[in-house]
Computed example of a mutant assay.
Amino acid sequence: MVRSHPRRRALLAVASVTVAAALSACTSSTSDPTDGGTSAAESSSLTIGLTYVPNVQFAPFYRAEQQGYFDEAGVDVTLRHHGEAEDLFGALTDGTEHVVVAGGDEMMQARDQGVPVVSIATLYTSYPVALIVPSDSEIQSPDDLAGHTVGVPGPFGETYFGLLAMLQEAGLTEDDVSIEHIGFTQQSALSEGHVDAVMGYQNNDVPQFAATGLEVRAVPIGDVPLVGIGLGTTDELTTTETEALRGVVAAVERAVADLVADPQLGVDAAVEEIPGTVDAEQEAIMHATMEATVPLYGEPGPGWGAHTGPWQEMSAFLAEAGLTSAIVPADEAYNNAFTDDE
Rank of each mutant, 00 (worst) to 15 (best):
V152S: 04
A73N: 02
R80I: 01
S137A: 13
A102M: 08
G74H: 07
G147P: 02
S126R: 14
Q57V: 14
L123P: 03
Y124L: 12
F156I: 11
Q66T: 01
E86V: 14
E106Y: 01
A121T: 05
G114I: 12
P134L: 13
I139V: 15
G151V: 06
R63M: 04
E138T: 15
S137W: 09
I132W: 02
M107L: 13
A64V: 11
L123M: 15
V118P: 00
R111Y: 02
D144N: 13
Y69S: 09
Y160L: 08
G74S: 07
D144I: 08
T149A: 15
Q140P: 00
A91L: 13
E106T: 01
V152W: 11
V75N: 07
F89G: 03
D136F: 06
H148Y: 14
R111W: 04
A121L: 09
G68E: 12
L123E: 06
S135K: 13
T149C: 10
G95W: 07
L123F: 12
G90R: 11
T125Q: 15
A73R: 07
I120W: 06
G74Y: 05
G95P: 05
E65H: 04
G154Y: 04
G154R: 05
D105I: 00
G114P: 13
D76Y: 03
P134S: 05
S126F: 01
P60V: 03
G104D: 06
Q66S: 11
A110T: 07
V150K: 02
A73E: 13
G147R: 10
Y124C: 04
L123A: 11
A130I: 01
D71H: 07
V100S: 12
Q140V: 11
D144Q: 10
Q113L: 15
D143I: 04
Y160G: 05
D87G: 13
Q109K: 12
V100E: 03
Q109M: 15
P155M: 12
V133K: 08
D143W: 10
R111M: 10
P128S: 13
P134Q: 04
G104V: 10
Q109Y: 00
M107V: 15
R80M: 11
S126G: 03
G114S: 08
Y160I: 07
F89T: 08
Q113V: 02
G151Q: 07
